[in-house]
């Protein structure tokens, strides 16, 4: 019995891939478009960050210019309260007790509550 041979002229080509139409643009175009969008976005972010830095600087300096004013007012109030409490202590005890072994200004911890409504 003769051996089974391929048909004369060979087999027909086997179709192993689908012939679907390719949608959209070439991938390189998408890559370029995404790159452009990203570049623009990062550029805007950079602008925003720089502006934010400047705004922070502006706010910081406005605060720096105000701090001595606020601090002076606060200190004056503190001194007023301290002197008042010292006077009261002298009136009540006849002498001033030195609490700390130091001549630094120490904020008094406790306040005397005025008996009547004062303000």
């Amino acid at each position: 019995m003769p051996q089974d041979m391929p048909p004369s002229g060979g087999y027909e080509p086997v179709q192993y891939r689908r012939n679907l139409p390719v949608r959209g643009f070439r991938p390189a175009y998408y890559l370029v478009a995404v790159g452009a969008i990203m570049t623009y976005g990062f550029w805007r972010i950079g602008q925003g960050i720089r502006e934010q830095n400047e705004l922070a600087r502006e706010k910081m300096w406005s605060r720096i210019y105000l701090i001595p004013l606020l601090q002076a007012e606060e200190d004056r109030d503190l001194v007023r309260r301290t002197l008042a409490s010292q006077t009261m202590e002298k009136e009540l005890l006849g002498a001033e007790t030195k609490v700390y072994h130091s001549d630094r200004f120490v904020r008094p911890t406790y306040a005397v509550t005025p008996a009547n409504v004062t303000k």
């Binding site: 309260r81 008042a84 904020r107 306040a111 005397v112 509550t113 005025p114 004062t118 303000k119």
Partner: peptide, 17 residues
């Protein structure tokens, strides 16, 4: 009388000397 301002009680805790 620390430097903290009185909270909740603005009427009586303030020594106005």
């Amino acid at each position: 009388m620390a430097s903290r301002q009185p909270r909740f009680n603005q009427q009586v805790l303030i020594d106005t000397t």
